[in-house]
Lab assay of single mutants.
Amino acid sequence: DNLVIALHSYEPSHDGDLGFEKGEQLRILEQSGEWWKAQSLTTGQEGFIPFNFVAKAN
């Protein structure tokens, strides 16, 4: 599964970004460059996240 966990909170700064809290679990939908499309397992919302704010969940 493409599950990751947030290492830091992220406040969206552009339309289409997905905000999240530290410790939140996300599902990665697309990996492309430094911005990945993800879905929050907490809110169900989708958007782009900075890849270096998350780590693979085990």
Results as ranks from 00 to 15, higher is better:
D1E: 13
D1G: 11
D1N: 11
D1V: 05
N2Y: 08
N2D: 10
N2W: 05
N2P: 03
N2S: 11
N2T: 10
N2I: 12
N2Q: 10
N2F: 15
N2E: 05
L3N: 10
L3P: 03
L3G: 02
L3R: 10
L3W: 09
L3D: 05
V4W: 15
V4S: 07
V4G: 06
I5P: 04
I5A: 05
I5T: 15
I5K: 06
I5E: 11
I5N: 09
I5F: 12
A6G: 09
A6I: 02
A6E: 01
A6N: 00
A6C: 09
A6H: 02
A6F: 01
L7D: 05
L7H: 06
L7Y: 05
H8W: 08
H8Q: 12
H8G: 08
H8N: 14
H8Y: 13
S9P: 10
S9Q: 08
S9F: 02
S9L: 01
S9H: 08
Y10H: 12
Y10S: 03
Y10N: 04
Y10A: 03
Y10V: 05
Y10G: 03
Y10L: 05
E11A: 11
E11W: 06
E11R: 11
E11I: 10
E11N: 10
E11D: 11
E11H: 10
P12D: 06
P12I: 05
P12S: 07
P12G: 05
P12L: 01
P12E: 02
P12F: 00
S13C: 13
S13V: 12
S13I: 09
S13P: 07
S13F: 06
S13E: 12
H14D: 09
H14L: 08
H14R: 15
H14C: 13
H14K: 15
D15M: 09
D15E: 14
D15H: 12
D15C: 10
D15W: 05
D15L: 12
D15G: 10
G16E: 08
G16P: 00
G16L: 08
G16W: 15
D17P: 02
D17R: 14
D17G: 13
D17A: 14
D17Y: 15
D17H: 14
D17V: 11
L18K: 00
L18C: 01
L18S: 01
L18A: 04
L18V: 06
L18D: 02
L18R: 01
G19K: 11
G19P: 10
G19R: 11
G19W: 02
G19N: 06
G19M: 07
F20T: 06
F20P: 02
F20S: 00
F20M: 08
E21T: 11
E21I: 05
E21N: 08
E21M: 11
K22G: 03
K22Y: 06
K22A: 10
K22T: 10
K22Q: 07
K22H: 04
G23M: 02
G23S: 04
G23R: 00
E24H: 02
E24Y: 02
E24N: 04
E24C: 04
E24F: 00
E24A: 07
E24P: 01
Q25I: 10
Q25R: 14
Q25N: 15
Q25C: 12
Q25G: 07
Q25L: 14
Q25T: 15
Q25V: 14
Q25F: 13
L26T: 02
L26M: 11
L26Y: 00
L26R: 03
L26W: 01
R27A: 08
R27V: 13
R27G: 01
R27Y: 10
R27K: 11
R27D: 06
I28D: 01
I28H: 00
I28G: 02
I28E: 00
I28T: 03
I28C: 03
L29I: 07
L29N: 00
L29T: 08
L29Y: 09
L29F: 05
L29V: 14
L29G: 03
E30C: 08
E30L: 04
E30A: 11
E30Y: 07
E30N: 13
E30H: 08
E30M: 08
Q31W: 10
Q31I: 04
Q31N: 13
Q31K: 14
Q31E: 14
Q31T: 08
Q31S: 14
Q31R: 15
Q31P: 09
Q31G: 12
S32V: 13
S32I: 09
S32R: 14
S32F: 06
G33H: 04
G33S: 10
G33F: 01
G33M: 02
G33K: 05
G33Y: 00
G33E: 05
G33A: 06
E34S: 13
E34Y: 13
E34M: 08
E34G: 11
E34D: 15
E34I: 11
E34H: 09
W35R: 15
W35V: 12
W35K: 15
W35A: 13
W35Y: 11
W35N: 11
W36F: 10
W36Q: 06
W36P: 08
W36A: 15
W36S: 06
W36H: 04
W36I: 04
K37A: 04
K37T: 08
K37S: 07
K37M: 07
K37W: 11
K37C: 04
K37Q: 06
A38V: 12
A38F: 02
A38R: 00
A38W: 04
A38P: 02
A38K: 00
A38N: 06
Q39C: 06
Q39Y: 05
Q39D: 00
Q39V: 14
Q39S: 08
Q39K: 13
S40T: 05
S40V: 04
S40D: 04
S40K: 12
S40P: 02
S40E: 02
S40N: 11
L41K: 07
L41Q: 10
L41S: 05
T42W: 09
T42G: 08
T42V: 14
T42M: 12
T42F: 07
T42A: 13
T42R: 13
T43M: 02
T43C: 00
T43K: 03
T43N: 08
T43I: 00
T43Q: 05
T43E: 04
T43Y: 01
T43G: 03
T43P: 01
G44I: 04
G44T: 04
G44K: 13
G44D: 08
G44L: 08
Q45P: 04
Q45D: 09
Q45N: 08
Q45E: 14
Q45T: 11
Q45F: 07
Q45C: 11
Q45G: 07
Q45M: 12
E46N: 09
E46W: 05
E46Y: 07
E46P: 02
E46D: 05
E46R: 09
G47F: 00
G47T: 01
G47S: 00
G47L: 02
G47H: 02
G47D: 01
G47W: 01
G47R: 03
G47E: 01
G47N: 01
G47A: 02
F48D: 04
F48T: 11
F48M: 13
F48L: 14
F48C: 10
F48V: 12
F48I: 08
F48N: 11
I49G: 01
I49R: 02
I49E: 00
I49F: 06
P50W: 03
P50E: 00
P50D: 03
F51R: 15
F51L: 09
F51A: 15
F51I: 15
F51E: 14
F51P: 15
N52D: 14
N52Q: 14
N52K: 14
N52A: 09
N52C: 07
F53D: 04
F53E: 05
F53L: 13
F53S: 15
V54F: 04
V54E: 03
V54H: 00
V54W: 02
V54K: 00
V54C: 07
V54G: 04
A55V: 14
A55Q: 15
A55F: 07
A55G: 14
A55R: 14
A55H: 08
A55W: 05
A55C: 11
A55S: 14
A55D: 12
A55M: 11
K56Y: 11
K56P: 15
K56I: 09
K56D: 11
K56M: 11
K56A: 14
A57F: 06
A57K: 10
A57Y: 10
A57W: 11
A57Q: 11
N58I: 15
N58S: 05
